[in-house]
Amino acid sequence: MTSLLATTLPSRFRWTDTLAWLPWIISAGIVGYAFLSGGYVVTLVVFALIYAVFVIGLNIFMGFTNQVSFGQNAFAAISGYTSAVLTTAYEWTTLPAIAVGVALAVLCAFLIGYPTLRLKGHYLAMGTLAIGLITYEISVEWSSVTQGYMGISGIPPLGIGAYEVTSDRGQLALLVVIVLILTFMSARIRTSRLGRAFFAVAGSEDAARALGVDVARYKLASFILSAACAALAGSLFVHVVGFVSPEVFGLHMVILSFTMLYVGGIGTVAGPLLGALIVSLLPDTFRAFKDYQDLAYGAVLILLLIYAPRGLAALFDRYVPAKKVGGAP
């Protein structure tokens, strides 16, 4: 966030600059409210933050690099299940289990991405969709390891060594830190040489190639970064809930994360967090509608897509003069 501050801070104050901060202020307000009020809003926000981790990754691949993947849930599942199995069946501690989980997911992302990223457009999308479905099937069928639909329970909470974060507020605080770090990283990537290469690939693969940008390599890099975030989210989920079953990483996760990305603002830095929070809390604000809850939620989503087609964060971006970026590469 400090880099954002540095890049958006103008020489003189303008009221429009506070608008640029609105997504952050709203996000901080929601998280702060949850922290103070306790109760199940904490649970909602904790899940939202885990999803934010997932969507930050998705945004790098889809927003920055303009590719499509319907299969990021596969990496969440790989890492989540690795975490779960290592900590329960083999009694590992949480941190190394997460590390191995994420590493395994990244390895899979490399093996999958290397051939498939040469595919274009809808071939890539279909390929990634297949990866998600296959992973789901494996988590159901490989029951000697995954326990199938029965799921794995008794997964220890997040923690370092003997210190375990079990309280709701503790988990919330830890996730806030993780999301801030990742958001900061994504902001840095956006303005780095790597990020410029992503945006060049997004703009026009041929134009990027003609400038000497190795398109396939950067697509792969983007895919792997994105998979790493998805994997981390998967592991965080299983340690926070203490349970994992195939449904957790099903198609539901893909739909939810896409909604978050588009509502929040694809390609923006604040979008994933804002989108994850809004989409997680929105249905709940309509809980009083009972059977019409989904209808109300759907209606609001449609309105959002009509009036903020580039997402909420982009809505505030519009009023902001272009970022000042240093001259050196």
Binding site: F199, G203, S204, A322, G326
Partner: peptide
Amino acid sequence: IILVPEGRGIFGPMSVAENLQLGAYRL
């Protein structure tokens, strides 16, 4: 051997500075 593609192929969402930086990508 550098091509200025038809339709210019500039990267619209990025700033002028960032576009120039991409030009010097291999530097």
